[in-house]
């Protein structure tokens, strides 16, 4: 169980994490998504006690990480696969970690086999590829057989086989009842791995949802092009549909500047009938099955509607400044 409550982290004048709250529950793989610089790594560093929160709290199993006596038995984390001493052998890198957390030395051999590095256990880490270092970092996270696991961009540098291996490993770990949090800036990867998604941008929560909900929210829309978008919006919203300006902006078609609208909650027939009833011309009606990737792009585009989402975050002075 991971809980982040009203977490804020500032570095000088920069706010990396801004009143962020979410919880990660056991038994699921939770994807922690956001563009580069969104505050994912900062949040994880605060969770692991590496950086101090400016305000708010970040708890693991109900307590602060830094208060744990043998933390690797409760929480396994991989932040940076490069954070190893190149001169040390793979076995020894895990060896000192095990020694420091009262973990028996046989676990070192076990996890090296589990991640496929048994053959290079006595080789120095300096000669490892990025993919091998990722596997070594994952081995370190698994060393103490912890109930909570955190991985920062674990598929970076892995080949397709490695990516699939990670995906299956994460799912297996969650199926054993563990809490698994994986950060990524790639929705395409999370789509296949995660059950739940926490999406952040500019340090603030954008969405805390399941993969299915997000797909439904963005995936069943209809793209409508009309020269009279304001009127159509009014009609469709009155009928219970959700209408948002579609990405791509107004398209120029002949003399008329058409408006592109993404309509949710209404099907193609209903939209066509209602437009006909009101005499609003439609130039295009396309059932739009947005991929999660597109949904994510829309969520994180930095567009004011999304960053100042009134439902998830109260508008603050900081937001007003940022979006103006």
């Amino acid at each position: 169980m991971i809980e982040v409550r009203e977490l804020t982290k500032r570095y000088g004048a920069t706010t990396a994490v801004d009143r962020l709250s979410f919880a990660v529950r056991p038994g699921t793989v939770t994807g922690f998504l956001g563009p580069n610089g969104a505050g994912k790594s900062t949040t994880m560093r605060v969770l692991l006690g590496l950086d101090a929160a400016t305000s708010g709290e970040a708890l693991v199993n109900g307590g602060r990480y830094a208060a744990l006596r043998r933390p690797m038995r409760e929480v396994g984390a991989l932040l940076d696969a490069g954070a190893v001493h190149g001169g040390r052998r793979a076995f020894d890198h895990l060896g000192w970690l095990a020694r420091g957390n009262g973990i028996p030395a046989r676990r070192v051999t076990e996890v090296l086999e589990q991640v496929g590095l048994a053959g290079v256990a006595r080789k120095r880490v300096a000669g490892f590829s990025l993919g091998m270092r990722q596997r070594l970092g994952i081995a370190a996270a698994l060393l103490g057989d912890p109930g909570v696991l955190m991985f920062d961009e674990p598929v970076n540098g892995l080949d397709p086989d490695g990516v699939r291996w990670i995906r299956e490993l994460m799912r297996a770990l969650a199926a054993e009842g563990r809490t698994v949090l994986i950060s990524s800036h790639l929705m395409s990867e999370m789509e296949l791995t995660a059950d739940r998604l926490i999406v952040i941008g500019r340090g603030r929560l954008i969405a805390d949802t399941s993969v299915r909900e997000l797909a439904q929210r963005f995936g069943r829309g209809v793209l409508v092009r009309t020269p009279r978008p304001a009127e159509l919006t009014e009609v469709l919203e009155a009928a219970g549909g959700s209408v948002e300006p579609a990405p791509g902006g107004p398209a120029t078609d002949g003399r008329l500047a058409d408006g592109r609208l993404a309509v949710g909650g209404l099907d193609v027939e209903a939209i066509g009938d209602m437009a006909a009833a009101k005499g609003i011309p439609l130039h295009e009606v396309t059932p739009h099955s947005a991929s999660l990737e597109e949904a994510y792009m829309a969520l994180t585009s930095g567009n004011a509607e999304f960053t100042a989402d009134a439902k998830t975050q109260p508008t603050t002075e900081a937001t007003a400044r940022r979006t103006s």
Binding site: L50, R69, D80, H85, W96, L97
Partner: peptide, 17 residues
């Protein structure tokens, strides 16, 4: 030498006190 590689974070994760 740990600050050069980022190893200090690994060390502090293993021994957070």
């Amino acid at each position: 030498s740990e600050y050069a590689t980022g190893m200090h974070r690994t060390s502090l994760t293993a021994l957070p006190r």
